[in-house]
C-alpha cells in the first residue's frame, strides 16, 4: 500500500503544527495535507476524485464552515460517504460527541494537552485505519472515542 493520505482541517495554526510534528514523530508512512476550514475541505474533496484522502481529521469549531456542517456535507456526497472521518476537537461535551457520531463520524479525539499524548492518539488512529481498510469493517458501525 502507498502512503496513508491524511487530511487535517483545522483553523488553528499551532494545532496544525502540533499535529504535523506529532505525525512526523510517530514515523509511519503518511502524507499530510492541511486545510483551514470546512469549505476549503469540501472544495478539495470534490475535485480530488482520483486520490482522495484515506483519513480526514476535522476540527469542530472553525470559521466559514464548521466541522459539523463539513461532516454532513461529506456524508451527503456519494463518493465520500465511506471515507473515514475523525473528529479532532477541544470539546469533551457528551452532546458534541454524540452529535458527530450521529452525523457519521467514525472517531472522536479530544485534543490533548501534552505532546506525547497527541502522538499516542495519532499512532492509535493510524493503526486503526489500516485495520479498517484491511478488514473492511461495517463502516457505519465503526465508532471510536479516544
Amino acid at each position: 500500500m502507498d502512503k496513508l493520505r491524511i487530511l487535517l482541517v483545522d483553523d488553528d495554526e499551532d494545532d496544525r503544527q502540533f499535529f504535523a510534528d506529532a505525525l512526523e514523530g510517530i514515523e509511519l508512512n503518511t502524507e499530510l495535507r492541511q486545510l483551514e476550514n470546512g469549505k476549503s475541505c469540501m472544495e478539495y474533496l470534490i475535485q480530488e476524485t482520483e486520490n482522495p484522502p484515506d483519513l480526514v481529521f476535522l476540527d469542530l469549531n472553525m470559521p466559514i464552515m464548521n466541522g459539523f456542517e463539513c461532516l454532513e456535507a461529506i456524508r451527503r456526497t456519494p463518493h465520500l460517504k465511506d471515507i473515514l472521518v475523525a473528529i479532532y476537537s477541544t470539546s469533551s461535551a457528551e452532546r458534541d460527541i454524540e452529535e458527530t457520531f450521529e452525523k457519521g463520524a467514525n472517531i472522536y479525539i479530544k485534543k490533548p494537552s501534552s505532546f506525547s499524548e497527541l502522538k499516542k492518539s495519532l499512532k492509535q488512529v493510524v493503526k486503526i485505519n489500516w485495520a479498517y481498510h484491511l478488514n473492511d469493517f461495517k463502516k457505519e458501525n465503526f465508532l471510536l472515542k479516544i
Binding site: N61, T90, S113
Partner: peptide, 18 residues
C-alpha cells in the same frame, strides 16, 4: 469557560510539554 479559556491553556500545556 469551557472553550475559550481552555484553548489557550491547552496550548500553553502543549508547548511546555514539547
Amino acid at each position: 469557560a469551557s472553550h475559550d479559556l481552555q484553548e489557550p491553556l491547552r496550548k500553553i500545556q502543549m508547548f511546555v510539554s514539547r
